[in-house]
Design a protein around this nucleic acid. Structure first.
Length: 424
DNA sequence: TCTGGGGTCCTAGGACCC
DNA sequence: TCTGGGGTCCTAGGACCC
């Protein structure tokens, strides 16, 4: 989602020589809010905020009329409503967003095989190889924008440049509903006046550290010796910042990449002190993580417990297993034992938990073949622990590979075919 | 009406090995 | 026998991004 306001001008760039700008960054405009507005066109010119309805919700997305009031993603909903009391608040529908994301990504895939997704609503495209067939990068960018609009009624913005980083900045500058080309020989004049916060990897903390040393613009960074930057922000970031500020960004557009971790976490509406409630939530999350591992055909070797207390201090405790697992029962055992052992090094903080989460790391392909269980009441479901499930249901159980269940291939009663039960 | 949920990457210290 | 240095794994925390 774009974080810029709506005041930037649209740029007609097809007249510019874009032959050197073969990397496109495409970013849907105010994505979640725009999808919601497809069903509520009467709200198009009204401030709209997408947020959950919990007291602790934050803004997930805001349309451009709402941004004029200073409403931004990730601010607390209460704060958003103080800034803009008449904003309409809509609840998110992530299934719909995934659907529209797939439609848009399919358009990208249609134009070039070299598409790198960035979350749900952005992608990089390397169009160097598509130039002969489809025209200049700027023409391809306009083609993409036309197709996205025609096929989804959503608008997007496109940046074209010689590198990923500059292409991403360019799409941000083009928002909303625009296209901006930064030819190779204009890269530095484009970059150098921008604030350091525009650099990838510079958030509030790094911006502070740089500002304290008098570094305010990307041009300032470009002119600072690497050793000095490293002292300010660390070994790796120092080098990275210096390169980006000088227009150097050798990263290629790489389609697909393996997941490194899988996790779930939840912030309670009110802080929880009852250990039983926490254990139940851990069990639920451990199972959810395990189902995702099995669906992806992965096993995990490290499990992480995350806790955030009422005062917002956050701790993580991890354990590396002797043998990788994709079983919820095993993950639960481990996080529960970590949780039970916590008292010793965090005395007095055991009460009032605000957030609890489970994550699985050190993922590798593999895993056994877990089974799906036919349950007379619930239909096909994941048989987490096959032996227990079978013995508990002996005589009634019907087993199939659970991968079929996860892929949605199992339907109905295996003995007396009938429509599957309605989803709850 | 204080601060979501999904992630990635980096740093730093200690253990351990050579 | 008072003490090096490189490499890797593990753990905890934090910054950052969408």
């Amino acid at each position: 989602m774009g974080r810029q306001d709506g005041s930037t001008r649209q740029v007609s760039a097809v007249s510019v020589d874009s032959s050197s700008a073969t990397i496109l960054h495409v970013d849907l405009d105010a994505f979640f809010a725009s999808v919601e507005l497809l069903d509520r066109p009467e709200l198009a010119d009204v401030p709209v905020v997408v947020a959950g309805n919990s007291a602790r919700s934050v803004v997930t997305a805001a349309n451009y009329p709402a941004r004029k009031f200073g409403v931004r993603s990730a601010i607390p909903l209460g704060q958003a409503l103080r800034l803009c009391p008449h904003a309409v608040v809509l609840e998110p529908h992530f299934e719909k967003y995934r659907h529209y994301s797939q439609l848009v990504m399919a358009i990208f895939d249609d134009v070039t095989p070299t598409v790198e997704r960035l979350g749900i609503d952005e992608a990089f495209l390397d169009v160097a190889g598509a130039r002969g067939l489809l025209g200049s990068p700027a023409e391809i960018g306009e083609l993409l924008r036309r197709r996205v609009q025609a096929e989804t009624r959503l608008t997007c913005s496109v940046g074209a440049a010689a590198t990923k980083f500059v292409a991403k900045l360019a799409s941000g500058r083009a928002k909303p509903d625009g296209l901006l080309v930064v030819p190779l020989d204009e890269t530095l004049s484009f970059l150098h006046p921008l604030p350091v916060s525009a650099l990838w990897g510079v958030g509030a903390a790094t911006e502070d550290a740089l500002r304290r040393r008098g570094l305010k613009t990307i041009g300032d960074i470009a002119a600072t010796p690497i050793a000095q930057l490293r002292r300010a922000v660390g070994e790796a970031s120092g080098l990275k910042l210096h390169e980006l500020a000088n227009g150097i960004d050798p990263r290629a557009v790489t389609p697909g990449s393996e997941e490194k971790s899988v996790g779930h976490e939840v912030t309670f509406e009110t802080d929880v002190t009852d250990p039983e409630v926490l254990r139940r939530e851990l069990l639920r999350q451990a199972n959810a993580v395990a189902v995702r591992l099995r669906t992806a055909g992965l096993v995990a070797r490290t499990v992480v417990l995350k806790l955030r207390y009422a005062d917002f201090t956050t701790i993580t405790r991890s354990r590396t297993l002797a043998e990788s697992t994709d079983l919820g029962r095993r993950i639960f055992e481990e996080v529960r034992s970590i949780y039970d052992a916590l008292g010793e090094d965090a005395p007095g903080q055991r009460d009032a938990v605000r957030l609890i989460g489970v994550r699985a790391e050190q993922l590798a392909p593999g895993g056994g073949q877990p089974l799906a269980l036919w349950d007379a009441d619930e239909g096909w479901r994941d048989a987490e622990d096959t032996m227990d499930a079978v013995s508990a249901r002996f005589g009634r159980g019907v087993l199939k590979p659970a991968s079929l269940l996860h892929q949605g291939e199992l339907r109905g009663d295996p003995r007396t075919p009938r429509p599957s039960r309605p989803e709850r």
